[in-house]
Amino acid sequence: MSETLLQIEDLHVEVEGREILTGLDLIIGKGEIHAIMGPNGSGKSTLAYVLTGRPGYEVTAGKMLYKGEDISPLAPDERAKAGIFLAFQYPTEVPGVSVVNFLRTAYNAIHPEDQKAAMAFRLFLQEKIDLLEIPTELVDRYVNQGFSGGEKKRNEILQMAVLSPELAIMDETDSGLDIDALKHVSGGVNKLAGPEVGIVLITHYQRLLNYIHPDVVHVLMGGRIARSGGFELAEQLEAEGYEGLAKELGLSVQDIEEVAREEGAS
């Protein structure tokens, strides 16, 4: 077993008074890549948000230990400084703030020992842009404003490459990417991967896992990790869907569908 990076124990999370995570356990070791799959509305993004400290996501019980320390009291920026990064499922548009200015501010906040002036940062950023084959003009535009779906996802990965986190969570970064973009994004993730880094890939598709090979695949259902396995679990889900697994676990499929329907309606 590698050294533990993230340890989640019996985590209960409420959003708007509704319990979404109902006792979730998960351990991520340094150097590991984990995939999390699960039906729509099962709470995958909720898990990602609660790890990054999004307001409105309340931990009602359980623990989140990152490098052995409880992160619940930390503000989002403090968690980011500690090395946690989330590639958002729906990246936020921030009017008037250019990507390059935003990223330089973030980089300098996270790396007090390596303050980069505008020119130096630009060069550093250009390397990452070239690596991910992102159109350069994107970084002079306002954060995510008017970006296509795929451009937003690639911008998330660019940010990840610039900030080089130790725990990177990617929430459906593969959705909406064309084949070439998927390759570039996977390349970026594989480049980040290493013995000190933990990676969590939230995805609906086995496709991504062909490019980034996970050590463990989890299924989030009924508010907790319902099953964990190897790559074959992803293959099984791709072939059979979640129904079989739900029956096996004694979860009513109706419950899941209801959640999915609410999700779709909201």
Partner: peptide, 23 residues
């Protein structure tokens, strides 16, 4: 907007500054 900026390590006041300058 503030949460998104803060999730990248930018403190709240600096995030507000970016948003206000953007405005």
């Amino acid at each position: 907007h503030l949460f998104y900026l803060m999730s990248r390590g930018i403190d709240r006041v600096t995030a507000q500054k970016l948003v206000v300058f953007g405005f």
